[in-house]
């Protein structure tokens, strides 16, 4: 299955603000830890290995 790379969040500005707010006041180390936890939570939610593979590829800005 392909990873969704077209807009899919109804409130992009709201989510973006929420994402940054979660990092408010954190050191770079604590932010990195939060990001890592977030990635793991989201990856597990997706579950499908082919989507995760496609997502990794997209994140590395590789051509699909």
């Amino acid at each position: 299955m392909a990873v969704t790379l077209t807009p899919n969040i109804t409130d992009p500005d709201g989510f973006y603000t929420q994402l940054l707010a979660a990092h408010d006041g954190l050191s770079i180390e604590d932010s990195a830890a939060l990001n890592a936890r977030l990635i793991l939570v989201l990856a597990n939610h997706i579950g499908d290995r082919s989507v995760l593979t496609a997502a990794l590829k997209a994140a590395k800005l590789e051509d699909s």
Partner: peptide, 17 residues
């Protein structure tokens, strides 16, 4: 190390990790 510790921190709380 960051990801390993993230797994450990999550595993105590959530079964998925």
């Amino acid at each position: 190390t960051i990801f390993r510790n993230a797994v450990l921190d999550l595993a105590g709380k959530y079964a998925f990790a």
